[in-house]
Design a protein around this nucleic acid. Structure first.
Length: 681
RNA sequence: GGGCCUGUAGCUCAGCGGUUAGAGCAGGGGACUCAUAAUCCCUUGGUCGCGAGUUCGAAUCUCGCCGGGCCUACCA
């Protein structure tokens, strides 16, 4: 029997769980349930990731302590996970004494190995908030292209990368004040000292090959940089014991949360911690998204190695979720919270749909809503559940036959498939497992069809035959329920209740069930109602701020808009009316709009300011607007902006729009009646 | 610009050197009526992105091109 400790990445205690997160937690939960069913010793550990500046900012904004915030978010997370049947053996928090203890231990090991260096680095400091500013909490003008209001690490307009101190007119996102440059001591882990170990470990089959290649070609082909793991206080986190006033960076203690939370579980269950984390026989499996490979495949094994913990056996890496082929988007309603989903739909639907899509590759998966409905209804309701639904009631009186009848080898065939299905589960290739199971289901209904129990029942002399046919159908159904139970635990439970024999082990699929009573059949799964899917999307859209809707609200009627945009980008320093007058905004009509094929973001526009006045403008709105759809409409442009030579030509102004970027861009349009050339003031 | 992944029936995908390329769904025709407008049978549908090469033989291997995606651009 294998002994397996499994983790999912720790969700950040700064926001709700959404359908994208659930890919990982459902993937992990299915894998863990499979291991348990298969008879392996397996525990599933997870926790909230609670430290860092973002937590402090949100807590301050909401006028409460960080501890209060993370306690509440933890409850919300647990409710969401519970609602989807995600069964952790223990769910903790990185803000725990156990995690602190292992941070100390690992830190000491790094010190002992002489892997810690100290250096002063310059960083922007918010005097009012008495806080150093992480890159993304500083905004200012790009030193290269002059684009305003860019984040502290790279320019969203020209793509230039720089450090926050290079920004022109930097502004703190915390207070809106101008930060100053201050020097502070930071601590670095010299991971290069384990380069040789990492070369070997990353290529030893612990990672998907895509990831192994990526690391090899991108990081391990050169000297590994020192990892800055400290932040000067105040910082919500753990203070570094031998460096007072400095705190561990959130990504230092987050993975240690796996260990700290394991320790909590051990203490609660009388288990020996070293048996799990200092034991070469123990397997450690991490499930993560491709965005955090870097931390889990370089720093994390380096830390474990140095401190003498069990190294991860496997890191399972999944891609991102798209919905209907596009990134999840609040404005289209495809950014769906877990709690919102649960208001409308059965979690079993999503568990099955994700399972039918997931494989062991680092690939993005798409939630196609139409396919979601069709697949669940056709596969689960039409094929699997239908098998029980159409046969159980004929044997509600008699129960299953005392001996298993001749079924032409069907049961044996189903049993024989168990090995291959188990192997697919083990490999994380759930889509393959689902296909194999559904192939079996496709053999089941024809059996019922040809043996027609509804005919047999008409003839009292054929009672035994009737019971036999239903015994076969229900046994096949039971095998399917066993194979599906990691994905659909509720269905397995109902199948157990129907046949008065709980499903507890994979092995049960090898032996026919006979002689048990059969309960009255009750629906095991409702069909997916497309209207409910629609409603879920619709309500998710309504929760996102939408200027169109707001504009229609009259007077001072309450509008429940999110404060997120303002938090993301605080109001800029005050200006005078004269400052504003420098800006010449004009109404303009789009005369032509063309794709710029070589450009990722740009659309080329010819704007008319009335009469013969034309402007050529490149606008970074390709992801949000089809050029054809722009022709003829009115926009607002900055008419007196200095012309700028771009790779594809000269841009003579800019059209103004709101939104964070990507496909979330909203052009401003004047109300009806406005004329091209009119000034906007 | 670089790296990785990907392009097979309307849709989702399987096949990854060897007989006339498959499944499910959708479409068409029929049957049944036990079952959640479920099921069963039959059936339409593909120059396997394009072009070269290797081979007795390529959807499958190699190269080039075209299209899609993700990641990167001295940076975690």
């Amino acid at each position: 029997m294998r002994q397996i400790l499994v983790t999912s990445a720790l969700p950040y205690a700064n926001g709700p769980i959404h359908l994208g997160h659930l890919v990982e937690y459902l993937q992990t939960d299915i894998w863990v349930r499979f291991q348990k069913l298969y008879g392996n010793r397996c525990i599933y550990i997870c926790a909230d990731d609670t430290h860092g500046t973002a937590i402090t900012i949100r807590a301050q904004h909401e006028g409460r302590s960080e501890e209060e915030l993370i306690a509440q978010v933890s409850q919300e997370h647990l409710a969401d996970f519970g609602g989807f049947g995600i069964a952790f053996d223990h769910y903790g928090s990185t803000n725990s004494e156990e995690t602190r203890q292992y941070c100390h231990e690992i830190w000491q090991a790094l010190r002992d190995a002489d892997m810690v260096a100290e250096r002063d680095i310059e960083q922007l400091y918010d005097v009012e908030k008495q806080s150093f500013l992480a890159d993304r909490f500083v905004r200012g003008t790009c030193p290269k292209c002059g684009a305003k209001n860019q984040p502290g690490d790279n320019c969203g307009s020209c793509g230039e990368t720089y450090s926050p101190s290079d920004l022109i007119d930097p502004v703190s996102a915390l207070s809106g004040t101008t930060p100053e440059i201050r020097s502070a001591k930071h601590l670095f882990v010299e991971i290069e000292k384990l380069h040789g170990f990492l070369d070997e470990w990353t290529q030893s089959g612990t990672l998907p090959s895509e990831s192994a290649n990526y690391l090899k070609g991108f990081f391990l082909n050169q000297a590994l940089r020192d990892w800055d793991i400290s932040r000067p206080g105040p910082y919500f986190g753990f203070e570094i014991p031998d460096s007072p006033g400095n705190y561990w960076y959130v990504w230092f203690d987050a993975p240690i949360g796996y260990i700290g939370t394991s320790k909590q579980w051990c203490d609660l269950h009388g288990e020996n911690f070293d048996d799990w984390w200092r034991n070469p026989e123990s397997e450690i499996h991490h499930f993560i998204g491709k965005d955090i490979q870097y931390f889990h495949t370089l720093f994390w094994p380096a830390m474990l190695k140095t401190a003498g913990f069990t190294l991860p056996t496997k890191v399972h890496i999944h891609g991102f979720l798209t919905v209907d082929g596009a990134k999840m988007s609040k404005s289209t309603g495809t950014f769906v919270r877990a709690s919102k989903y649960l208001e409308h739909l059965d979690p079993a639907f999503l568990r099955y749909y994700y399972a039918s899509k997931l494989n062991s590759k680092v690939e993005d998966i798409d939630l196609n809503l139409e396919e979601f409905v069709a697949r669940v209804n056709s596969d689960l309701v039409g094929k699997v559940v239908n098998l029980a639904s159409r046969s159980a009631k004929f044997v509600a009186e008699s129960g299953l036959s005392a001996t298993y009848p001749d079924d032409g080898g069907l049961f044996e065939k189903f049993a024989a498939e168990g090995g291959a299905i188990a192997a697919s589960y083990e490999a994380g290739d759930f889509s393959k497992a689902m296909r194999a199971i559904l192939d079996l289901a496709d053999l089941s209904n024809p059996y019922v069809e040809t043996n027609a129990p509804w005919e047999l029942r008409k003839d009292p002399e054929k009672a035994q035959q009737l019971q036999d046919v239903c015994t076969v159908a229900l046994n096949l159904f039971r095998q399917l329920a066993i194979y599906l139970s990691p994905v659909l635990p509720d269905l397995a439970e109902k199948a157990g209740a129907l046949l008065n024999d709980p499903i507890t082990s994979w092995e049960q699929a090898k032996t026919p069930l006979v002689g048990t009573p059969v309960a009255k059949f009750q629906h095991m799964l409702q069909r997916v109602d497309p209207k409910k899917v629609e409603a879920m999307i619709e309500e998710s859209r309504e929760e996102a701020p939408d200027t169109q809707v707001v504009a229609e609200v009259s007077g001072t009627a309450a509008v429940d808009d999110s404060d997120q945009p303002l938090k993301d980008e605080p109001i800029a320093p005050e200006i005078t009316i004269d400052d504003f007058a420098k800006l010449d905004l004009r109404v303009a009509r789009v005369i032509t709009a063309n794709e710029v094929p070589e450009a990722r973001k740009l659309v080329q526009l010819t704007l008319s300011l009335g009469g013969d006045e034309r402007r050529n403008v490149f606008a970074g709105i390709k992801a949000a607007y089809e050029p054809e759809a722009l022709v003829g409409r009115l926009v607002v442009m900055v008419a007196n902006l200095a012309p700028r030579t771009m790779k594809f030509g000269v841009s003579e102004g800019m059209v103004i729009a709101s939104g964070p970027g990507g496909d979330d861009i909203y052009l401003l349009s004047p109300d009806d009646g406005a004329q091209p050339g009119q000034r906007v003031r």
